[in-house]
Amino acid sequence: MNILWDFDGTLFDSYPAYTSVLSQVLGDSVDEKEIYDQLKVSFSHAIDYYGLSEKQINEINNLNKLISPNDITPFESVEKILTFADKNVIMTHKSRAGVSAILNHYGWDKYFVDMVTIDDGFPRKPDSLSYVYLHQKHHIDLVIGDRLLDILPAKELGIQTCLFQNTNDAADYQLSHYEDFFKVVNIVKAQ
């Protein structure tokens, strides 16, 4: 099975760190749960929702660079899936350097045969061009993401989709915990 993964919020629990950064920029008057919820839609959605200025966006970007890989932890049991898959690839809006730093920190670079990052010049999700590229190269069987925009390109291409910690009915499968992943695998293989 060849799996295309989103990075933030799917492989790694990064949103608490990003929420903290945005909270620091917005100040104490904004609830962190609300910030988290807006970030889970997308970073650009949060920018629009809070009406962030260019100065605030630059401050966020600078603070994000200070986040340590120790602050971005892998989700429980995801490594079992990475070892199970025939191929794992990543499609993320994160920089290649940022992704590589975290993967190397956890010794997970060995699990991925390819990745597309913001540095590669593809349009942002939900545009499907990066997915087309990875699918043509690696014959993707399943796309796993935590947000609707992570799976929409796969749906467009007819690839099976799985949402992690998200209950949107657009996904073929939904997981609250990666321990349940192998139930999904059995269903995918049966089709």
Results as ranks from 00 to 15, higher is better:
Asp114Glu: 06
Ser95Arg: 10
Thr83Ser: 14
Leu129Phe: 06
Ile72Asn: 02
Glu79Phe: 07
Tyr133Thr: 04
Asp120Thr: 11
Ala101Arg: 15
Gln136Val: 03
Tyr133Trp: 07
Ser77Phe: 13
Leu82Val: 06
Ser100His: 02
Ser29Pro: 03
Asp71Trp: 02
Val113Tyr: 06
Tyr111Ala: 10
Val116Trp: 01
Leu82Phe: 09
Gly27Pro: 02
Ser128Lys: 12
Lys65Met: 12
Leu134Val: 06
Gly27Cys: 13
Tyr131Gln: 04
Lys80Asn: 13
Tyr50Arg: 12
Leu134His: 00
Lys55Phe: 08
His93Arg: 10
Glu79Gln: 10
Phe43Gln: 10
Ala101Leu: 10
Gly27Glu: 06
Val113Met: 03
Ile60Trp: 04
Asp114Trp: 03
Leu26Thr: 08
Pro74Met: 07
Gln56Ala: 11
Met91Asp: 05
Ile47Leu: 08
Lys40Arg: 15
Arg96Asp: 10
Leu103Cys: 08
His45Glu: 12
Thr83Phe: 01
Tyr49Ile: 04
Phe122Tyr: 13
Tyr133Val: 02
Glu76Ala: 10
Thr73Val: 15
Pro126Lys: 01
Ile57Asp: 07
Ile72Glu: 08
Val99Pro: 01
Pro74Tyr: 07
Met91Ile: 13
Pro69Gln: 03
Asp120Ile: 11
Tyr36Arg: 14
Ser130His: 09
Tyr50Cys: 10
Gln136Thr: 06
Glu76Cys: 05
Ile60Pro: 06
Lys40Tyr: 07
Glu32Leu: 14
Ser128Cys: 03
Ile102Lys: 11
Glu76Met: 08
Ser95Ala: 03
Ile118Asp: 02
Tyr131Ser: 14
Ser95Gly: 03
Glu32Pro: 14
Gly27Asn: 12
Leu63Tyr: 06
Gly107Leu: 05
Leu52Thr: 10
Ser68Trp: 06
Leu134Tyr: 03
Thr83Gly: 07
Asp127Gly: 02
Val99Arg: 04
Pro126Val: 00
Asp86Tyr: 03
Glu76Pro: 03
Leu134Met: 11
Ser130Cys: 06
Pro126Gly: 03
Leu103Trp: 03
Lys65Trp: 00
Leu82Pro: 11
Phe75Ile: 09
Asn104Tyr: 00
Asp86Lys: 14
Met91Leu: 14
Asp86Ser: 14
Val99Gln: 01
Ile102Gln: 11
Gln24Tyr: 14
Lys87Gln: 08
Ile72Ala: 05
Pro74Cys: 12
Gly51Met: 05
Leu134Glu: 11
Asp120Phe: 07
Ser53Phe: 05
Asn104Ser: 12
Lys55Met: 06
Glu34Asp: 11
Tyr36Val: 03
Ala85Val: 14
Leu103His: 07
Lys40Met: 14
Val30Leu: 09
Gly98Trp: 08
Pro126Leu: 05
Asp28Phe: 05
